[in-house]
């Protein structure tokens, strides 16, 4: 029998407690009837009512989700093709990967500022399209990074076997290559989704014309003093992400099980 209160377990519990404390603090006050977080008045759903009545906020949430889904989808397609191409490029593979990783590590502020300059130079109006394009752009390297290892570990004999059994190039690609790298594609898609959902810095630069995403909106509202409607929203978001993580883990466990030789 292992000791229940070992030092390792205690440390882990402490870490988790500290990480989740602020979130639970936020959630706790979202149910308070007061308007500030300096003392719990009594239980009420009033902040949720204002949240769901706030059409501006709801439309921003929808915008954010649409941007995230579209950006994740498009960047997954481009990033996966990119990973396949990088894997095929024998000589320039390293250089291409370095170029990809530079985009990953460079600060969001720099990327955001450069997009702002780029869009104003081209005369693109700032709004939905500028945000979508820049989100796609910063998600691609993430997808490449998630998909590439899967592409590399896929044995070449798998596509050879498909050709051998009579598959055309397209059939081999769609029926063998894609399913074989699917776990990487899935991981890339979800990573791109979360990156796009949370992005603040890049969006802050390229948004305008009344268009806003959740991160930017919360930031601008928080500057005028915290409103407990934000707490209610955060609670909803927290639950949604909990569900998403659950779905994702179900998916990836299944994917892994099938990938084992």
């Amino acid at each position: 029998m292992k000791k229940f209160f070992s030092l390792g377990r205690l440390f882990l519990a402490l870490v988790f407690f500290l990480m989740y404390l602020p979130i639970f603090y936020l959630i706790y006050y979202s149910f308070s009837s007061g308007s500030r977080m300096d003392g719990f008045k009594h239980f009420s759903l009033v902040h949720y009512q204002t949240l769901f009545a706030d059409t501006r906020m709801i439309s921003i949430v929808l915008n954010t989700l649409i941007i995230a889904l579209l950006a994740a989808l498009i960047s997954t397609i481009i990033g996966t093709s990119g990973a396949l191409a990088i894997n095929r490029a024998k000589r320039s593979r390293r250089q291409l990967l370095v170029l990809n990783n530079i985009l990953m590590v460079s600060p969001d502020v720099i990327i955001g500022a450069s997009f702002l300059i780029f869009f104003t130079f081209l005369g693109v109006q700032l709004g939905f399209w500028s945000v979508l394009l820049s989100h796609i752009a910063f998600c691609i390297p993430i997808v490449v990074l998630m998909v590439l290892p899967q592409v590399r570990t896929m044995p070449r004999s798998l596509t050879d076997a498909a050709y051998d059994l009579g598959a055309s190039r397209w059939q081999a690609f769609s029926q063998v290559t894609i399913p074989a790298i699917a776990p990487g594609i899935r991981a890339g898609f979800f990573m791109a989704l979360t990156y796009s959902l949370d992005d603040f810095a890049v969006t802050f630069f390229v948004t305008g014309n009344g268009f806003s995403t959740l991160a930017v909106e919360i930031y601008s509202r928080a500057r005028q003093g915290i409103d407990l409607e934000i707490n209610a929203l955060s609670t909803v978001m927290f639950l949604v992400s909990l569900v998403l993580v659950f779905i994702y883990s179900r998916f990836s466990v299944k994917g892994k099980g099938a990938a084992v030789k």
Binding site: P155, S157, D160, A161, A162, V176, P179, A180, A259, K261
Partner: peptide
């Protein structure tokens, strides 16, 4: 048709 050294079975 070929039987591959690593079998090359389709994992999915």
């Amino acid at each position: 048709n070929t039987v591959f050294q690593d079998y090359a079975l389709f994992p999915n």
